[in-house]
Amino acid sequence: MKKTLLKYFPFLYQWRVQQLIWNRHLRNLNPNIAYARGRRPDAFNFVCKKHKSVLRRVLANSDPILQENKIKNLNIALEHIDGIVIHPGETFSFWKLIGKTTKAKGYIEGLMLSQGEVRTGTGGGLCQLANMLFWLALHTPLEIKERHHHSFDIFPDDRRVIPFGTGTSVFYNYVDLRFYNPTHLTFQYKIMVSEEFLEGAILCNAEPERMYKVEERNHRFYQNENRWYRGNEIWRLEISRQDNKLMNERLIIRNNSEVKYMNLNFESA
């Protein structure tokens, strides 16, 4: 019923989006939240985690130009993210740093995921940056305060090196990505675009007492009412640096996403 109404009355969707945007603006006025804003050009010495992701992927029925546009959008966004530091007690907010992606700022059309479909929009492609930030944060004691996942598995794996379902969805400004720093340490993001990759690292001003590893469990494809789904669990493990002893493990994500690409001879689990 909801999708039918939006199909015939698209202005209702735009009205709802604007309502959500203004609601988030009001919530952002909360004086009890100290947002991370400071940046430093020099990097901290201790590396918690490094990662790189492919910029140009094989995406069926999508214009390759949109991937080049994505790279331009990433470079603009990185002007606000690279070098950002998260001091004790501060909250990192994706949209508080980047702001609205407009043509006036230089953003152009790129791929976006919306309501389970691949679309185009100004500033499209920034989900790849959000994915990077989230994956790196999982390897630190930063607390995930807000993270939204895609309810659909849109594209088949293409050179995937991290577990399925560790990505995140962002949409200005009410679908945000936020971390809180509960420690006495200060963390820093260093992110860059190279010729083939989005490359990133999360650094610290001192060595944390624990190491953090991310582990996938119970991955499977399964069928339900003639539709295919993909499910798994993502666990974060805390390991002592002193003796490599497992100190704690916690389930942080449980994924069950509808598969939208072609049936690849999946077998029910």
Rank of each mutant, 00 (worst) to 15 (best):
P41R: 01
P41D: 05
D42M: 01
A43I: 03
N45I: 04
V47M: 09
V47D: 09
V47K: 13
C48Y: 10
C48M: 15
K49E: 14
K50I: 06
H51T: 10
S53Q: 05
S53K: 06
L55F: 09
R56W: 08
R57G: 04
L59S: 01
A60P: 04
A60S: 09
N61D: 15
S62K: 03
S62M: 03
P64T: 04
I65C: 03
N69A: 13
K70G: 11
I71G: 08
L74Y: 04
L74N: 05
A77C: 05
A77R: 04
L78V: 02
H80S: 15
I81Y: 00
D82I: 11
D82G: 10
G83Q: 11
I84L: 15
I84M: 12
V85P: 07
I86S: 14
H87S: 09
E90G: 02
T91I: 03
T91P: 06
F92M: 07
F94E: 14
L97F: 09
G99L: 06
K103T: 14
A104F: 03
A104C: 03
Y107T: 11
I108G: 03
I108V: 15
E109T: 07
G110Q: 02
G110R: 07
L111T: 01
L111I: 06
S114E: 01
E117L: 08
R119W: 00
T120H: 00
G121E: 07
G121P: 03
G123A: 13
G123V: 10
G124S: 01
L126D: 05
C127L: 06
C127S: 12
N131V: 08
L133F: 07
F134L: 15
L136V: 10
L138R: 03
H139P: 11
L142A: 14
L142T: 13
I144T: 12
K145E: 04
R147E: 05
H148C: 02
H148Q: 01
H148N: 05
H149C: 04
H149M: 12
H150T: 03
S151A: 03
D153T: 12
F155T: 11
F155A: 12
F155C: 09
D158V: 02
D158N: 04
R159M: 12
R159N: 15
R159P: 08
R159E: 14
R160S: 15
